[in-house]
Amino acid sequence: MALKRKRSNSATRLLETNGDTWSTSSTSSNREFELATTEFTIKINVPKQSRNKKKPQARFEPDIISKLVVQPSKWYRMKEYSSFVHSKITFKRGDIVEVKRPGTDGVHGERKEWIARVLDVRADDPAHVYVRIAWFYWPEDLPMGRMEYHGRNEVIESNHPDIIDAMTVNGKADIKEWDEEDEDASFEGYYYRQQFDYLSSQLTTPREFCICESYYNPDTKIVNCPECNIWMHEECIIADAIKRHKKSSLIAKIGDDLKSDSAVTLVEKGDKKGHDKSQKSTHKSDQNVAVVLFEGKIRIKEVIKRGDDDSDSGLDADTIIDEDIRCLKCGEVVP
């Protein structure tokens, strides 16, 4: 990532580990700053691992400082600080912050900023403050792209390292970690549950849910069975209901056809071989099933389409059925 930004006259203060305060002068140089190329560059002291077809589990290290080589070496000679103050906001190590993107002019809004975690704060004088960070990713920015289970407000933690100018920090980001094993967890706004390992280009695996053993997109519904404590995707419950009702309707239709085809074969007098006077129906029917979860029930709407020779409308009466939700694993009714 690269940022270009002119320094403004906004003051930045540094807070040392021992609590002493170092205030900046009210004026600072208006030099051009390009984040990844002007002051510092970061190299990783280990080769990237080759991708494996089996996609091994990522071994995520939040801070890969032991593997970093920062150039120029003056980075290591600069004084370390526990936090800094910018625009009257104190930013500490570990804080998740918004970083201004080119062309946004610091305007807040959905995905207007980059997101990063503060890992280190250093400065060689009050007017030149730098922050070592690890980037967060939007799902669509991952090498593998956005997955079906990624929610609209989901971000991905990474250990992708960088060093930015403290003046490009726009504010604190309200992002919560979601522990999927905590079934009582609730949150609003942006959240993260996965980590992207920059060294191996692998993504940690989220928790598996349902009998399909797939993942959960929190923008969709999920239903818990208290009997066997399995969580079921709404779409899996709906797919099961559609499958069952199409199957039961097909069995009923075959039964009706068998009854119709069991009519006595008429044999005209003098016809040795016999002649089938029964006429099989050319009628064709096609049943569409729509299913939704409604007020703790499965609501099924069957629309039976008739052939053109049956009616002008081509539609028979719809059938609406309400059923209890049953667990896809143990079969018990889900209250």
Rank of each mutant, 00 (worst) to 15 (best):
D276W: 02
K272L: 04
K284C: 12
D286M: 11
K284W: 04
V289K: 06
D286P: 01
F294H: 09
F294A: 14
E268V: 04
S281H: 09
T282R: 13
E268H: 10
K277S: 12
D256G: 13
V264I: 13
K284F: 06
A263P: 03
L258D: 02
D256A: 12
K284D: 10
S260T: 10
Q279C: 05
K301Y: 02
K273I: 00
K277P: 00
L293N: 00
V291N: 00
Q287C: 09
D286A: 08
A290V: 02
T265N: 12
V289R: 00
K269C: 09
A290G: 02
S281L: 06
H283K: 12
K277Y: 07
K297Q: 14
H283S: 10
K280S: 13
K273V: 02
A263S: 14
S260M: 09
G270E: 01
Q279E: 09
S260P: 01
E302I: 15
Q279W: 11
K277A: 09
K259N: 15
E302C: 05
I300Y: 12
K301W: 06
V291K: 02
S281G: 10
T265H: 05
T282V: 08
V264Y: 04
V264L: 06
S260Q: 15
Q287A: 07
V267Y: 12
T282Q: 14
H275L: 07
K273F: 00
L258M: 01
K277M: 07
Q287W: 05
E302D: 08
D271F: 00
V292D: 08
V291S: 01
T282S: 13
E268P: 01
D286G: 10
K284V: 08
S285I: 14
D286L: 04
K297L: 06
S285C: 10
K280P: 05
I298H: 01
L266Q: 08
L293A: 01
K297R: 14
D271W: 00
A290S: 06
G296H: 10
